[in-house]
């Protein structure tokens, strides 16, 4: 039900490596999980609105907005202090293509 192609595509999207010798096991794992959640299809949800936020409506927390006022921007050291690689004021990452 979950093809190897699907597994590989999902792995690529998630930027995870699945070594050759683990692929079948990973595919089976994914298939088992998908089969497990498939039981939801028994329910008729055609006219049901999805519930993305559990308390927003009920607590009136819609329109939580911020004023357009500058707050301190102090994180340069925080960023660069934690960055695996840096070059002066920049974070350095492996070369990208445009």
């Amino acid at each position: 039900m979950i093809s190897m192609e699907t597994l590989e595509r999902v792995g690529r999207l998630a930027e995870l490596e699945i070594p050759e010798n683990q692929r079948e096991a990973a595919r089976q794992d994914l298939e088992k999980m998908v089969t497990f959640v498939d039981v939801m299809k028994e329910l008729n949800v055609k006219n049901v609105e999805p519930l993305y936020q559990v308390t927003a409506e009920r607590a009136g927390t819609q329109n939580i907005l911020r004023d357009d006022v500058v707050t301190e921007g102090e994180a340069r050291e925080a960023l660069l202090g934690n960055a695996p690689k840096r070059r002066g004021e920049f974070a350095s990452v492996p070369k990208t293509f445009a």
Binding site: L79, K85, R87, E89, F90, A91, S92, V93, P94, K95, T96, A98
Partner: peptide, 13 residues
């Protein structure tokens, strides 16, 4: 910023 000779790219956030 792409660093031409080097093999790194610099990021300004």
């Amino acid at each position: 910023t792409h660093d031409e000779e080097g093999r790194e790219t610099l990021v300004d956030y």
